[in-house]
């Protein structure tokens, strides 16, 4: 059919995962970008699951990919709700200023 192999997709998901981790450490000021980097990391996990499922001819990987999608949507909703509440209370989304629990 093709000369595409699992290694192509594994390398792709690896690169996307690394980009997500890099962005997570790079954007220490912006909480929205951190949530987006988490979405990118989950996308890399999804690519890995789905391509492994296709190339090993096992459908369970794609079912798990659907569960990952569910959890990612729930996580995004909760994270953005926390972000909105935090912005309403402090007027900024700089995460270096989140130290109110110390007092």
């Amino acid at each position: 059919m093709t000369s595409l192999s699992y290694n192509h997709f594994f390398t792709l998901s690896l690169v996307i995962f690394i980009i997500g981790c890099f962005g997570l450490f790079l954007n220490r000021r912006n909480m929205i970008l951190i949530l987006m980097c988490i979405e990118i990391i989950l996308l890399a996990a999804n690519i890995n699951f789905v391509s492994a499922s296709v190339f090993l001819n096992d459908i369970n990987g794609q079912v798990f990919s659907i569960f990952i999608l569910t959890i990612a949507a729930a996580e995004a909703a909760i994270g953005l709700a926390i972000l909105v509440v935090y912005f309403r209370n402090k007027g900024e989304i700089d995460i270096t200023q989140i130290n109110q629990l110390k007092d």
Partner: peptide, 29 residues
């Protein structure tokens, strides 16, 4: 690669829901 269902679900969930949610929040703040 032949995983049509997960591909379309990804488009619906991520582009239709999660990314638009992000866009709303970014525009709101």
């Amino acid at each position: 690669i032949g995983a049509e269902f997960v591909g379309i679900i990804l488009a619906i969930v991520y582009i239709g829901a999660v990314a638009i949610l992000f866009l709303f929040v970014v525009m709101m703040l």
